[in-house]
């Protein structure tokens, strides 16, 4: 196929990314409601953290301003990283259940790349539509420790992009479970609850004590919020720290995408032999 084949593939998945973006862009009122929810939720958690850090200053190595920054980064990224809902995975489980997945299979596309591209489009939309406002409101109402250096912001965005891929890869594996388990939606809900805890949306992973904290900091969910937040807060400054953060994220992305691929090929075999 050569270069034209590669560029054709690129154009296809670029079109899927664009479609994923536009799909969410059509839901304006949902977006507005979501921004509002994230902002309100941000206030609640921010006041809780202020009380907590009053009692335990320096918890998790954060001062109060850093802790508050962590809160608002969390709210800004929550949608892009699908922390409250499984996003595409809900659609995918439904398609597996009702057999529409067969239609997806006969098209000349790769299922995983297809869903990844469409989820990247969605995340891109939600990062800007639902991320910017909460973070701005947070910065206006609280003393945040946001960096002034644009390079740090750029490094942060790279980490966010990797986080989006890891988030996708986790949910793709969970969604594929629906090929074997009767209650695919239940798997997603369970994964959502576990994920919310281990992502550190409620309490930073740095602040989690003992063995639980040690575990939480090496699980894939640590790649979602903790890594980008650390980078923005300057906790990973220096080329070494930065690269280690990226390597951690990329490592999980590769492992989970590969796991998804393995499951996908065995799911495909099952469909092709058993009809679903």
């Amino acid at each position: 196929m050569g270069t034209s084949g590669a560029s054709g593939t690129l154009r296809l998945y670029a079109a899927v990314v664009a479609g994923g973006f536009r799909r969410y862009a059509t839901y304006r009122s949902a977006t507005a409601a979501g921004v509002f929810t994230n902002t309100v939720f941000g206030f609640i958690v921010a006041y809780t953290y202020m009380a907590l850090w009053d009692e335990r200053p320096g918890l998790g190595g954060y001062d109060e301003a850093q802790a508050l920054t962590y809160v608002w980064i969390g709210q800004a990224l929550a949608q892009a990283l699908s922390m409250f809902n499984a996003g595409f995975a809900v659609d995918m489980v439904a398609r597996i259940r009702n057999g529409d997945i067969a239609v997806d299979l006969y098209r000349p596309v790769d299922l995983q790349l297809w869903w990844l591209a469409s989820d990247l489009g969605r995340a891109g939309f939600q990062l800007f539509s639902r991320g910017v406002v909460p973070l701005t409101v947070g910065a206006l109402c609280f003393p945040l420790a946001l960096p002034g250096d644009p390079v740090v912001w750029l490094e942060f965005l790279v980490a966010v992009a990797l986080a989006v891929v890891v988030s996708f890869a986790i949910r793709y594996v969970l969604a594929l479970a629906a090929f074997w388990l009767i209650d695919g939606t239940g798997v997603l809900q369970f994964g959502g609850v576990v994920g919310m805890f281990f992502t550190g949306l409620l309490l930073p992973l740095n602040a989690m004590p003992g063995a639980l904290g040690d575990l939480a900091r090496v699980l894939p969910w640590a790649a979602l919020l903790q890594m980008p937040a650390d980078i923005l807060l300057g906790a990973r400054s220096g080329a070494d720290g930065l690269l280690r953060a990226y390597a951690f994220q990329a490592g999980w992305a590769v492992v989970l995408l590969a796991a998804g691929r393995l499951l996908q090929s065995s799911a495909t075999r099952k469909v092709v032999l058993q009809g679903g």
């Binding site: 054709g8 154009r11 296809l12 079109a15 899927v16 479609g19 536009r22 799909r23 059509t26 057999g99 529409d100 067969a102 239609v103 006969y106 098209r107 000349p108 596309v109």
Partner: peptide
């Protein structure tokens, strides 16, 4: 292929978007 009870079209997007996608998918 057309499966009467299923659709290959992109549910939330204008019809033309699905066609643009076919354009790329089938080169």
């Amino acid at each position: 292929v057309v499966f009467g009870q299923r659709t290959t079209l992109w549910w939330d997007l204008p019809l033309i978007d699905s066609y643009r996608l076919m354009h790329r998918m089938y080169r």
